[in-house]
């Protein structure tokens, strides 16, 4: 039972963080980014290579984050911004193309073998009594997820964050009051890349990642984002956590084969009952 909840919260944190990355880019730059998980994968693989080359752990973590940010900003400037006037579909397709290309690049450079990001606490676990032991890496995932969510929420309360909110609410008006939408879009993509890098890194320090990882991760990320109505940060975060826990409980008490579809069906029900995301009535004014 406890093991099930912890496993659920752990994978839920990954879904939630990736969902947050998607929502941030969606809010400020208006792009549904299907390449988000691949961006995190590229950054994480750079970090893993640096670690293999003998660099200290925290330096490699820092490098991973920097690569994530740089990748986001670069993609925004080079590919996305000039397409933005055509609406969602070309942007969506561009991110699909990007995800295929990035995935293939990772396969060419690093191969398709699964890898892990060894952390000082890898393999250490804490006994919590009753014969149940919880891995430190699981706790790290959950705590970092929570801290990340709080940090992003705080950011949206800063003045840059306020400008982003203005853009999200009304692009034309935002421009009138002197908001530089291009700069904001770059910042949003940078933050998105950063969170994506954290997400995949967290998964890599606890289990394994490979070129297969992004495919399922991105769906869960989008589901989490949907549960937050693509706007609510708190809704997305809570939605991701709930998704992870539901999935574990379905696996533990119903059938491991049906995990994915039952989790998605729950989301479907949520959507039908609350067509604007499940936090609509309860959410704080965070946008």
């Amino acid at each position: 039972m406890l093991q099930t909840i912890v496993s659920g919260l752990e994978s839920g944190s990954w879904f939630a963080l990736l969902g947050l990355a998607i929502v941030v880019v969606m809010k400020a730059a208006d792009v549904p980014n299907f390449a988000m998980a691949e961006m995190g994968l590229v950054a994480t693989y750079v970090g893993i290579s640096l670690a293999a080359a003998g660099l200290p752990f925290w330096i490699t973590v820092l490098a991973t984050l920097v690569v994530g940010i740089a990748l986001g900003v670069l993609i925004d400037a080079a590919l996305m911004r000039r397409l933005s006037k055509y609406g969602h579909f070309p942007l969506l397709l561009m991110t699909i193309g990007l995800s295929l290309a990035l995935n293939a690049v990772v396969g060419l450079i690093w191969g398709h073998d699964p890898r892990s990001f060894p952390a000082p606490w890898s393999g250490v676990s804490v006994s919590v009594g009753g014969g149940v032991s919880i891995g430190v890496s699981q706790i790290v995932s959950i705590v970092v997820g929570l801290v990340g969510a709080v940090a992003i929420t705080m950011f949206f309360r800063s003045s840059t964050g306020a400008q982003m909110r203005a853009v999200a609410e009304n692009r034309a008006t935002a421009r009138l009051i002197g908001v530089n939408a291009g700069r904001l879009s770059a910042i949003a993509w940078g933050i998105g890349g950063l969170i994506a890098a954290v997400t995949v890194m967290l998964q890599a320090q606890s289990s394994l990642v490979s070129t297969i990882t992004p495919t399922s991760l991105i769906i869960y990320g989008f589901v989490a984002a949907t549960m937050g109505g693509f706007t609510s940060l708190i809704g997305t975060f809570v939605g991701g956590l709930i998704l992870g826990v539901i999935q574990q409980f379905v696996g533990a008490y119903l059938s491991t084969a049906a995990q994915f579809s039952v989790a998605l069906l729950v989301v479907f029900l949520v959507l039908v009952l609350r067509p604007d995301g499940f936090t609509k009535g309860v959410r704080l004014r965070d946008v």
């Binding site: 289990s207 297969i212 491991t256 084969a257």
Partner: peptide, 17 residues
């Protein structure tokens, strides 16, 4: 006798059981 979904790396509940 646990079954996992193809292409998914979600194995923890199967392992737990």
């Amino acid at each position: 006798d646990e079954t996992t979904a193809t292409g998914s790396t979600e194995v923890s509940s199967a392992v737990n059981k």
